[in-house]
Amino acid sequence: MSKLVRFAADILYPVVLIFGLYIVAHGHITPGGGFQGGAVIATGVALVIVAYSYKEVIGWIGKGGLMAREVIGLMGFIGVALFAFLFGMPFFYNYLAGQGGLFGVPVAFGPNPGELNTGGTVPLMNFAVGIEVWGGLSLVILYLLSGLIEKKDQEEEGS
């Protein structure tokens, strides 16, 4: 793409990244959550992939990082849910909510200003799902683009 598009992508990518992480981190207070924030970050990655050429992007990002992100996200999500067994609770029990400490400030019924240190296991699951969706959706676009590049190379060799 042209220099203008690359400049705009350079400016916009950190903004989109921070906005997506904000949506993930505040998922238990404001509208949003893991899936929405991860999709927003993946849109930013798609912007960078469109603005630069495929070989440059694959040099920066790499396939292993995104795949590791996806696997770590899924395993972390199931691990946080499985961790309830250590406390003698059923699967998916919210063992941190209302207990004090990390993510454990109790919340009263009714409208309130909102505290970031609430929510129990929900913020941890939000981060896990956000990381997984970030890796997964970016990886889908990279895979499809690699197929396109390979088709072009084959046509050039064949002709």
């Binding site: 949506i23 949003g32 899936f35 929405q36 999709a39 927003v40 993946a42 849109t43």
Partner: peptide, 13 residues
């Protein structure tokens, strides 16, 4: 919630 995910996935990805 649905509006954010629709704007990111439907209109972007």
């Amino acid at each position: 919630d649905v509006a954010i995910s629709q704007a990111a996935i439907g209109a972007g990805l």
